[in-house]
Design a protein around this nucleic acid. Structure first.
Lengths: 228, 228
DNA sequence: TCAGAATGCGAGCAATTGCTCAGGTTTTGT
DNA sequence: ACAAAACCTGAGCAATTGCTCGCATTCTGA
């Protein structure tokens, strides 16, 4: 148990064989994380689960942390991709619809692989994955900001970048919170409604107030099933 | 390194001497957490730092986790208290002022002992402190909910309990996020402004829209320095 | 074909950790 | 004063972990 034996991997996977090996190591890592948590994650165990030997593991990962880091990178890239899709979907919609879609997208992406999502977001502080997370958030914020630009005149906030960041932070935070402490909320229609109102009321309170005024008793009818 | 040797402490501190011991153990735990992180937290090290022997530690804490759990309890109790004060302050104020105060309170409580706050919230998943955290959130939500009751007619949300929970979750989440990823924001006036707008726009979009309408060019002048 | 590079193996080392226990010291109640 | 209870000590056990290294196997390209 030295301090930090090595920082770079000894080799990069060039042949197909080794690429598969790296891949199965990451999958094994994910499995073990889900089944036994971070405490139960052992390099020996990972190698075992992946059906390779520890030695091979240490060819491509300099240490235990880097395993989790790599997994987080793979995972957040996937997340980014699916959310980018929603972003495209939404370019030409009204603010109300777009916000609704974004909220659903956030909740959906939390639900997918919920258990892994949960463990990864929780364990991020344990590994040096903050940079990766920051990057992720920055890219998300930029996306949202550039979407906000499209609606500039309808919005009642000036600093669109700060606004975008706050929206992203809010949705991510509330999704995670719900996942961890109130899983029922994730599937509750009224939760979606409230989140939409939260975001819309922030970006365009006037529109939001109109909306809640016109919804005296009747249910609001917003369809749009986010998928993926 | 057994699995979980014992769950209950052997003794409860009854004499004054041992109470001080327990206290210094918790403080030592906090110090070490701040200086070396959770990885660096060792029962031997804690005992050393507190100037007692490991044996004594294990008289009052059944295992390592319980140390951190106890620390989290002590810390969240303190938090709860200071925030409860703000709650009293605010009973007779307008929604706008009250929201502003709550936002500032949230940011303040994050700033105090920022480093410890950060490590504790991050390490909560590592120990069995979720129950304590849930309790904390529930109590906070109840406080906020009962405050919302006072303004029932002015609000444009029906489910006040859900609303309270969302407000609490939002403020806590954004404060933590800011602390960890954008510390500058914690002291930025415009961040406070945005958060107030976020919450107000959710609870009472009509009022929020009036507010942002009347703030064409001029700076909004909201004083009120939250202290504590 | 075949050398050398890439890949893979896994027993085992070195270090560390959480925790115990037999025994000493201090406090309390009488 | 004195016994019992509460408190404290710390050497060291048992287990576990991250990681290395000498060697075997497979692949690549000329």
């Amino acid at each position: 148990m030295k301090k930090k034996a090595r920082i770079n991997p000894r080799k990069l996977p060039t042949q197909e064989r080794s690429k598969q090996l790296v891949d199965s190591l990451l999958s094994a890592t994910a499995n073990i994380l889900v089944r036994r948590g971070y405490e139960g994650l052992t390099t020996n165990r990972v190698a075992d689960e992946a059906g390779v030997s520890v030695g091979s593991l240490y060819q491509y990962f300099p240490n235990k942390e880097s395993l989790v880091e790599a997994l987080i990178r793979r995972w957040s890239d996937g997340l980014m991709e699916t959310i980018a899709d929603h972003y495209l979907e939404v370019r030409n919609e009204s603010i109300e619809t777009a916000v609704d879609t974004m909220v659903r997208a956030a909740l959906d992406s939390t639900r997918v692989d919920a258990k892994l999502h949960r463990i990864l977001t929780q364990q991020i502080p344990n590994v040096n994955a903050l940079p990766a997370l920051e990057l992720f958030n920055r890219r998300m914020s930029e996306r949202v900001a550039s979407w906000l630009e499209l609606h500039r005149e309808e919005l009642e906030v000036e600093d669109l970048h700060l606004a975008a960041e706050i929206v992203v932070m809010t949705l991510a935070g509330l999704s995670d919170y719900a996942l961890i402490q109130r899983p029922e909320l994730l599937d509750s229609p009224s939760f979606v409604q409230h989140l939409s109102r939260l975001v819309l009321g922030y970006l365009a309170p006037t529109r939001a107030s109109q909306l809640s005024a016109s919804a005296g008793k009747r249910r609001r009818t917003s369809k749009r099933l986010a998928q993926s």
